[in-house]
Amino acid sequence: MVSPRDLLLADGRTLRVHDSADAHTPADAFTVLWHHGSPQTGALLEPLVVAAAARGIRLLAYGRPSYGGSTGQRGRTVASAADDVAQLADQLGLDRFAVMGASGGGPHALACAALLPERVLATACLASLAPLQADGFDWFDGMASDGESLRAALLGSAAREEYELTAEFDSKSFVDRDYAALAGTWASLESDVGLASAAGTEGLVDDDLAFVLPWGFSVSDIVTPVLYAQGGRDRVVPPAHATWLLQNTPEAELWLRPRDGHIAVLDASAVAMDWLREHSADF
């Protein structure tokens, strides 16, 4: 795996990119671009790297604005990710690729699928939020702490920043399988969250503000295959979000893992990579 590199974007910002490719990686390797959760640095997590290497997949990731060395972008929307990814792909010489995202990365992966149909072959989202404006279900129902951080974001950036000053983690956000995952396979995720949190809260606040505003695209416009994986016991992103996404994304399927919570569902990542390759028909 090569060292992270900073790409210069058209507006002068930098985007920090992580790449599993090395000198032995074929130029035509199947490529998956990972969209990280909130908050994380964008660095490649060990279980993802291992799963990708076992499948001969080139795995890329980047820090969204204000995360992991990437320049901030106040006022960004979920759709803004597609423009950043298009510039990333241009600079790295990528023609077509799959995208994958977990938790807060899910909506940003969907943005790429909707807005870059000529480049994104297939998409996999694990524990992804649905748009707040979605009809037919209570968006906050079932969220730990009643979704306090997202409710604060609805009141604007000042309210969301003020909330963060006294915010504390609700231990009920995770179930037993989540804690087991963080103590085992996904220990690198917990470490990465700690690094991202220590660097400041701007990225997390901007993510939440983007989630509660209109995303800038509709999942109904996605024309390529989408996989949703959802834990049935998720208290961060409740299962109703995945159900709505399934019903409103034309070429979608849902893997419901009834006993998993928000972290344990990440164990589906490896087989989701297999699904992405299978459904990237044009590759």
Rank of each mutant, 00 (worst) to 15 (best):
S66P: 06
A229Q: 05
S171D: 15
H279C: 05
V193F: 09
W255R: 00
A113M: 00
A23C: 00
G147H: 06
L227G: 01
S218G: 10
Q87K: 06
A180F: 08
G75E: 07
A54G: 06
G72M: 07
D84W: 03
W139N: 04
V17Q: 02
S171K: 10
A10P: 01
R233E: 15
Y62A: 14
A113W: 00
A86L: 12
S38W: 09
Q87E: 15
D6H: 09
T31I: 04
L246Y: 05
T166Q: 12
A111W: 09
G106T: 04
L121I: 00
L195G: 07
D95H: 14
D22M: 04
D260W: 11
A272Y: 12
T31M: 05
T185D: 15
D19I: 13
L132I: 06
G56K: 00
W244P: 01
W34I: 01
D234W: 08
W244A: 05
D208V: 00
L129P: 14
G75P: 13
A187R: 10
L110I: 05
S197P: 02
H24Q: 13
A130Q: 07
A152P: 01
L45M: 12
C125D: 05
L165A: 13
S145F: 14
D260E: 15
R16T: 11
M143Y: 10
V226N: 01
D22W: 10
S218H: 03
R64I: 07
A27L: 08
N248K: 02
R13T: 10
D6Q: 09
V219K: 03
S269W: 14
L45N: 03
W244H: 06
L116F: 09
H18W: 15
G37S: 06
L246Q: 14
P117S: 03
L121F: 06
L209M: 02
H36S: 11
G136S: 07
